[in-house]
Simulated assay, not measured.
Amino acid sequence: MNSVHNAAQAVLEVTGLSVGFAQRGTVLRAVDDISLHIAPGEVLGLVGESGSGKSMTAYSLLGLVEPPGQVSADTFRLCGKEMRAADERAWRQLRGRRIAMIFQDPMMTLNPVLRIDTQMVEAIHAHRRVGRGAALEMAAAALQRVGIADAPARLHAYPHQLSGGMRQRVAIAIALLNAPDLIVADEPTTALDVTIQAQILAEMQALCQASGTALLWITHDLAVVAALADRVCVMYAGRIVEQGPVDQVLAQPAHPYTRGLLDSTPAAAPSQHADNAGATRRLSTIPGLPPALGERPEGCAFRPRCARASAACLQVPALVAVSPGHEVRCFHPLARVSA
């Protein structure tokens, strides 16, 4: 994994990003003042429960939020271009060529009535002037890169003739076709079995290292982040509550929410180990549910579910550093364990 980040060469640099929806005289913020940066070849994991704002963040980064959604940012640079005032024409020039998205459902990418070769050739021709023969060669090579055997034959198939895992590999291949600078992947392996998931994760990591493509991987699965990412951002109720190098955040989480996610994950929970009496312990759970968009409490949104909450938590905490590159948004962060 590439753990070195140079902000000067960031593929994506966004600060103060918010996505709001006007409702009954007020604005509900699905994404609230978040900042992200990703360097070439770097994998950034964005983690959180359903409803935390992860997918809305992804759509905003590709200019896919439609009215009545309102996107604002203090800084929004993508591949060196300032995108805050970009129109749809400018976004079309970037999407598919410089930035691509992989959806959770591959049929968001694939047209069910067109053969795979037709769809991949169209994706190439949208951004490059090459002949059909050369485009077909590029398409077959892209399928081979994501582990699809007998790629020329698969090009003649329709999506319904492929398995779910195969369709997702095709969707990933289409995202890679034009060698984008950044890929945004919105939980693309959630519906796949663990064997296929592991294969795709390994392939994506190798492709990013080989090509220099940056990857934003959105998931609720901390095990995926541990295996894939260089850095991780933990999101709750529209805000980033913790971020830093993945090894640090997972080994020594500073936010109670991050700790709760880890304790409720089988791979990280103490239930995997026997206690002194030889009995196993149950997985921990975070009490309550994430707040709905229109019902988020004032101050720290995690306050109603947090055992460490106090009156101070009626205010919104700022992101503060707990170690170099590791930040937390909490008035009562967990104590770090000294080496």
Rank of each mutant, 00 (worst) to 15 (best):
I174H: 04
G51I: 04
A301C: 01
I183P: 13
M166E: 00
V316F: 05
A58H: 07
A179Y: 11
H37L: 11
N178G: 09
Q93W: 08
T213S: 09
D181V: 03
R132F: 10
A274D: 12
V234S: 02
A7E: 14
P324A: 00
G48Q: 06
G165R: 13
P287S: 07
E242H: 03
G80H: 09
A22Y: 00
C330H: 01
F21D: 09
V232G: 02
S52L: 04
Q248Y: 01
L261M: 06
E203K: 09
Q70C: 02
R336H: 04
A39R: 01
R29Y: 09
L289P: 01
L250R: 07
R259W: 05
Q243F: 10
S50K: 04
D193Q: 04
T26Y: 00
A274I: 03
Q205E: 13
Q199H: 13
L216W: 04
G41A: 10
P333D: 03
S211C: 11
C79D: 08
L44T: 13
L110T: 09
S338R: 09
A237S: 03
L283Q: 03
T75G: 07
G45H: 03
S50M: 05
S55F: 00
F103R: 14
P188H: 12
R308P: 00
L250K: 08
R336K: 06
A277Q: 02
S338K: 11
L155R: 11
S284Q: 15
Q199I: 00
M107Q: 12
N2D: 12
P333K: 02
L228N: 04
I38R: 05
P333L: 06
A85Q: 15
